[in-house]
Nucleic acid binder design. Structure first.
Lengths: 212, 212
DNA sequence: GTCTATACCGAGATAGAC
DNA sequence: GTCTATCTCGGTATAGAC
């Protein structure tokens, strides 16, 4: 990295091309879905010439995997940082904090959210990739929280698998559906006040007592 | 309708063609999404010759609208029938019944569910159509239930808009994501026992007291 | 009125130019 | 090693056959 300046300017430009393509790919795949987002659109959004996706990544499939990996790497780091903020509070407050952190995270990384929902609907190689690399670890993380809640006697009265989909569905759907929410009620889920209200509401619903 | 038998057999066959196309269109649009589902695939699924979509419906867009209208007409009737089953129980039990009915409905009409989630993500003319024709009436229906819950003093402590997305997200997401659920935990949300457990869990979470 | 052959366009991939 | 002109395929729509 320190020798980037010493690099061949051609190689450097190639690196920029790759980065711009990854970033544009995430935006397009999340906003439009894999099939609807064309490589031509992505190249245009990235501001690079046609054909460069195939040169740098080999195929549209490979670009998707590279872009998804790149996105989730950053997102996972961010989520961990946020969660670390609850180190020194009491155990039950920490559960509520976890729920709020997840809701806030869903709101601030809409691409993560949209990608997960889109591919969760599908049932193909992209779902395989996501489940193996992203969803399974996350599922286990949520399970640990749920087990802790059971130990404390405050877990909602349902099997874990149902809790998982209640949390994810209730916590994230509104932000995936920002357009619908605005059309329905004029409420933009990207507003900070809406995010806060949703986070608090869900935390209180799942682990009551935080508002007393 | 009674004179269908007297009809020109050619016209009768055309009617069959249309019905088969509508049915196939719903399956494909729900399973694959609007863009991924090609008119060729839909015609093949319907078992009709190429070009008949454009003849009978004019365009792929028009087929989508016709198919969506056809689906939701049937679905709305079904949902009303189910809801009518709670006429003679006490008010709070009726709230729980409403939640369970919605969850069961989401599970038994996966096409409705998938279509709503897919198009909710998008932000185009199909979302416009759905919000205007389907989602808005449903939103108002849920609001009436919520207002009734407030009157009874048992509404969850959150503004209605948040309640709406909690209900819909928590109630429906697992069924939209059947493939993910199976890969994650080997649990098939289409199993009757899973549907029941989810319906009960969510009803109890939103309107507690039903299990005492 | 119903259906089918063809047209035309835009997709992703590749072979070849710099 | 990096980029671009070209190819082939599959998409929807239409003009024409029955």
């Amino acid at each position: 990295m320190a020798e980037a300046v010493r690099k061949d300017p051609v190689q450097e430009r190639a690196q920029i091309t790759r980065d711009r393509l990854l970033s544009a790919a995430i935006r397009k795949f999340a906003a439009l879905g894999y099939d609807t987002a064309s490589t031509r659109q992505i190249e245009e959004e990235a501001g690079v010439k046609r054909g460069l996706i195939n040169y740098h990544f080999g195929s549209k499939d490979a670009l998707w995997k590279a872009a998804a990996g790149w996105l989730f790497e950053r997102a996972a780091a961010e989520l961990e940082t946020v969660e670390a903020g609850a180190a020194n509070v009491d155990p039950i407050a920490r559960l509520r904090y976890f729920v709020r952190a997840y809701v806030r995270f869903s709101a601030s990384y809409p691409e993560v959210n949209q990608l997960m929902v889109r591919e969760g609907l599908d049932d193909d190689w992209r779902l395989d990739w996501l489940v193996e690399n992203i969803v399974s670890p996350w599922y286990q993380r949520v399970r640990a929280v749920f087990v802790e809640a059971e130990r404390l006697g405050v877990a909602p009265d349902m099997p874990f698998h149902h809790f998982y989909y209640v949390l994810v569905g209730a916590g994230a759907l509104m932000f995936s559906m920002a357009g619908e929410s605005k059309r329905l009620a004029g409420i933009d889920p990207r507003d900070e006040s809406v995010v806060s209200a949703h986070a608090d509401a869900l935390a209180e619903l799942l682990f009551p007592g935080g508002r007393e």
